[in-house]
């Protein structure tokens, strides 16, 4: 039987959303609307389900989990999502380094190296890029910063929430390389793309 990274179910009067994301696979989900998408992404990122929702992350049911175990589950999930946007009064580097600096791991030298590598791979000039605040970055650049920030914690599950929203065709081709970059660093990792049906 295939091991699942995410099993999710939410039933409302209007529709039912179900997800079964196999470990190590790339899964694309098209949910009926933005509300359903927000519920799914929020549940996965929080490792918590609301009434009417069922969620299992890496085989553990999220219902009634004690806080330390919930925190451990949450640490295994990364996301590029409008729900986890950048902090506007910090520059790109401070945004990327914030979780590592706050939690004390990984070391900032390692974060800096990762940021330089990934940004250079996407054709950005790291020194120039990292010094700018989010308002000075374009939509793709903001998603790149969010992507690098989520890579820092080496997540086992990467959620790309409406990744192509607000991007031009050329930028979408750039963003499509996020998955390969993630795979290069987490070969066993799971990727979940979530979009609404209207967008897809």
């Amino acid at each position: 039987m295939t091991e699942l990274a995410v099993r999710y179910r939410r039933k409302t009067a209007r529709h039912e959303v179900q997800a079964a994301v196999p470990k190590g696979a790339v899964t694309r989900m098209h949910v009926p609307d933005d509300d359903a998408k927000a519920h799914l992404v929020t549940a996965v990122l929080k490792a918590r389900c609301e009434p009417g929702e069922e969620l299992e992350l890496f085989g553990e049911s999220a219902a009634g989990l004690p806080p330390p175990r919930r925190e451990r589950l949450r640490a295994r999930v990364g996301a590029v999502s409008p729900i986890v946007g950048l902090i506007t009064n910090l520059n790109a580097w401070e945004n990327i380094a914030l979780p590592a600096a706050y939690h004390g791991a990984p070391p900032l030298e390692q974060v800096a190296m990762l940021a330089h590598e990934v940004l250079a791979a996407f054709g950005a000039q790291p020194r120039h890029f990292l010094a700018r605040i989010p308002d000075e970055l374009g939509m793709l650049e903001r998603k790149m910063a969010a992507f690098v920030r989520s890579l820092v914690t080496a997540p086992e599950l990467m959620v790309f929430d409406a990744l192509e929203d607000g991007l031009s065709y050329a930028e979408c081709r750039h963003a499509a390389r996020f998955e390969a970059e993630y795979r290069a660093r987490q070969p066993q990792g799971t990727v979940l793309y979530v979009d609404t049906r209207e967008d897809s």
Partner: peptide, 11 residues
């Protein structure tokens, strides 16, 4: 939603 983003990062 930036405070929410901070919470998701465990801050």
């Amino acid at each position: 939603g930036q405070t929410r983003a901070l919470r998701y990062m465990g801050i």
